[in-house]
Design a protein around this nucleic acid. Sequence first.
DNA 1: CCCCTTTAGTTGCATATCCCACACAGTAAA
DNA 2: TTTACTGTGTGGGATATGCAACTAAAGGGG
Lengths: 217, 217
Amino acid sequence: MLSEQELEKSPLFHDISYQDYREILSCFQAVQRSFRADELIYDFSSDAVGVVERGQASLIRIDEEGVATVLEDLGVGSVFGKTLAFAGSTGDSLEVVCRRPCDVVFIDYGHILSRCGHACQRHSILVQNMLQLMADKAQALSRRVDVLSRRSIREKLLCYFRQLSQQSGSRTFTLPFSLSTLADYIATDRSAMMRELKRLREEGSVRSDGRQFTIRQ
Amino acid sequence: MLSEQELEKSPLFHDISYQDYREILSCFQAVQRSFRADELIYDFSSDAVGVVERGQASLIRIDEEGVATVLEDLGVGSVFGKTLAFAGSTGDSLEVVCRRPCDVVFIDYGHILSRCGHACQRHSILVQNMLQLMADKAQALSRRVDVLSRRSIREKLLCYFRQLSQQSGSRTFTLPFSLSTLADYIATDRSAMMRELKRLREEGSVRSDGRQFTIRQ
DNA sequence: CCCCTTTAGTTGCATATCCCACACAGTAAA
DNA sequence: TTTACTGTGTGGGATATGCAACTAAAGGGG
């Protein structure tokens, strides 16, 4: 349950009054829960949709051999759920894991899409907010595809760096995760990525200090 | 402008009466246009959102060296637009190109998100339909990420084949595009992909006849 | 019919990438 | 202090992948 101050910052309940928010929680059978780092948030077994209201989480894929891959970086406003994405087509399992202490709202997706007779005013604002969140999600996934569809490690790195640079509005930016995780994010071998990173540094295309990076141009 | 029969099949105007549909078109300044194969549908210069109502299109990225890559396969119900995905972060250009004769509806995205006082009933159904389409889009993008995040051509192929198999509900399925385009879709070299495909066939993991494929298990 | 484009299929060769291994720093727990 | 663990940085050797080139089949249009 959010406080009135927290509610204003909520991506899902944006522009909804505190009174309406409380009614929605009960009417939609929405559940709000907090998680500590490394806790399992969601295992794609229920039909619920989760929205990250605070903190940070990761969507992880674990294949048959036990190799884990970060599929999504879920910050505030991120949406996840079986019905929304990653239907879990293959034999490997999916998990949402907490990285930094999280607040998450779970809502039954069918409830959102069904046309309910009463409460239609609240409902329609909620749907509108949800649409905005889904658009953001599509943006994030598109960016990911943009990176992954590059054909060399070098191009992947540069593409990703340009994205971060653009997002921060500056040639200097901070990686949202460790270099090891970055290798995972761009789906390449870590040592190969480090080698390529070294080359980029040597030729002056990139400067870096820890997770702080600056690109030329 | 759709006929009444066509309207029923429209993904965006689903559950909207013909009368309302006509009013929405004018109220939202929506435009409906048809395209022939290879025509340019959208160049990411306007803020409009496009919905494919009939036919098939592709979202293409063209990098500085002129190399084209298929980023999305846009079938009926697919949504595209600058504000939705692929902000065009980098220096390369994006285009939506017609593959098979298309009908496309263009709507100003701001119009959809703004809370309009009048016409709220129609509006909310439209938003709900839009949400559904965005969820589908997120699904498609997620599947793409699932494939692209695999670390070898072999794994990419198998992952993609499993997806198609699951979608068709059978071990046998038909590729939605040519093998050349497939190589592009999984972001690898065509000849390397053919080589891997040959191996898969030889060891019996995959059987194929033209674009018809069958996977083992 | 021929021309022209697209697609499928194959191969040799260069190399980018993967895999394994090791060294080192920082940090937290014991 | 040790011990364990995670992240960073580097290198050698094996190989999967990319690149260029070619043949052949299939279709489409004049």
